[in-house]
C-alpha cells in the first residue's frame, strides 16, 4: 500500500530541520507525523554512560533523527566491551568511548550534532554537562551515578529515563519532575554494592531490549505523549515484562516538595 503523506501542505519556504525522505517511514506513524518529527529533530538528548544500554540507545536516537546528542563517558573502549556495546569495533579498542561513539553516530547520520564529554558525571559537573538537555538518558552502571542523575533531573526539572541491566534482567523508569515519582520515591538505593555486567554476567540482547524500551519512553516524552512513572522489570529468562506502579512519595527526600 502506498501511504500518501501530507507533504503537499508544506511550502518550499518551510525550513525543516531534517531530511523528510529519510524519516518517511516513521513520519507515517500517526503519533509521530511531521510535527513530531520536527520535535525530534530539534530535540537535545543527553546520554550519560555509553556502555551497554547507552550505546544501543545512542544508535536508536541517532537513527530516528534526534537533533543533538550529548555523550558523557569517562572510559575507553575495551575488548571485553565488544560483545555487547554495539557502537564499537575492534579498531576502537583503546579509544575514548565518546570519540569512537561520535565517529560511528556521525557516519550513521550526518545531520546529527554531537557534544561529547570524556568525564565521569558527578554533582560538581552534572548541571554544566547536561545544560540544554530536553531529556537525560541514564546509561550509567552504578547506584551513585544514578542517584546523582535523579537528583539533578529533579533539581533542573529535566525528564530522565532510567535504564539498568545485568544478567538476563533489565529495569526502566521514566522520571518527569513534578509529574511522576522519582527513583528515591520507590526506594531505589542511593548507593550500594555495584555488581557490574562483567562480574555478574550480561546477556547482550537484554541491553538492546532495555535500550529500546527506554528510547520509546524518551520519544514519548519528547512528543508530549502520555507517560507514567511506572517501573518496568524486563526478564529475558522468563520472557516477561512486569509493570509496577510507582506513585509519588509525598515525603520523598528528593522530590517531595515538587510533588504537588
Amino acid at each position: 500500500m502506498v501511504m500518501l503523506l501530507p507533504f503537499s501542505r508544506l511550502s518550499m519556504e518551510d525550513k525543516l530541520p531534517m531530511n523528510i525522505n529519510r524519516y518517511r517511514g516513521q513520519i507515517a506513524l500517526e503519533e509521530i507525523s511531521m510535527e513530531g518529527q520536527k520535535k525530534l529533530s530539534s530535540a537535545h538528548v543527553s546520554i550519560v554512560g555509553i556502555g551497554g544500554t547507552g550505546s544501543s540507545a545512542a544508535e536508536l536516537f541517532s537513527r530516528i533523527g534526534i537533533g543533538t546528542l550529548t555523550l558523557i563517558d569517562p572510559d575507553v573502549v575495551a575488548e571485553s566491551d565488544l560483545h555487547r556495546q554495539v557502537l564499537y569495533s575492534e579498531s576502537d579498542v583503546g579509544t575514548p568511548k565518546v570519540d569512537a561513539a561520535s565517529n560511528r553516530l556521525r557516519a550513521e547520520n550526518g545531520d546529527l550534532t554531537i557534544l561529547k564529554f570524556r568525564n565521569r558525571l558527578d554533582e560538581s559537573n552534572a548541571e554544566r554537562l547536561l545544560l540544554g538537555s530536553d531529556i537525560i538518558y541514564d546509561g550509567t552502571d552504578n547506584f551513585e551515578s544514578r542517584d546523582t542523575l535523579n537528583r539533578v533531573a529533579v533539581r533542573t526539572k529535566t525528564p530522565l529515563v532510567m535504564t539498568s541491566a545485568v544478567d538476563y534482567y533489565g529495569q526502566v523508569k521514566a522520571i518527569i519532575p513534578g509529574v511522576t515519582s522519582c527513583l528515591a520515591c520507590i526506594g531505589y538505593p542511593e548507593e550500594g554494592e555495584n555488581i557490574s555486567c562483567s562480574t555478574m554476567g550480561i546477556f547482550p540482547p537484554v541491553l538492546s531490549f532495555v535500550a529500546a524500551f527506554g528510547v520509546n519512553l524518551a520519544v514519548k516524552i519528547l512528543l508530549s505523549l502520555p507517560v507514567s512513572g511506572d517501573y518496568y522489570h524486563l526478564d529475558m529468562k522468563s520472557l516477561t515484562v512486569t509493570k509496577i506502579t510507582a506513585r509519588i512519595n509525598e515525603r520523598c527526600p528528593v522530590c517531595g516538595s515538587q510533588s504537588h
Binding site: 551497554g52 541514564d138 552502571d141 539498568s164 506513585r247
Partner: peptide, 26 residues
C-alpha cells in the same frame, strides 16, 4: 499489590508481595 511500598508498610491477608533487586548495571 503491584505498587512500591516502604519496608514499614503494613500487610493484610491476600496481599501479593513482590521482591525486586534494584539493578545497577548498564
Amino acid at each position: 499489590n503491584e505498587q512500591f511500598v516502604s519496608p514499614s508498610a503494613k500487610l493484610k491477608d491476600g496481599d501479593v508481595v513482590a521482591l525486586l533487586p534494584p539493578l545497577n548495571g548498564g
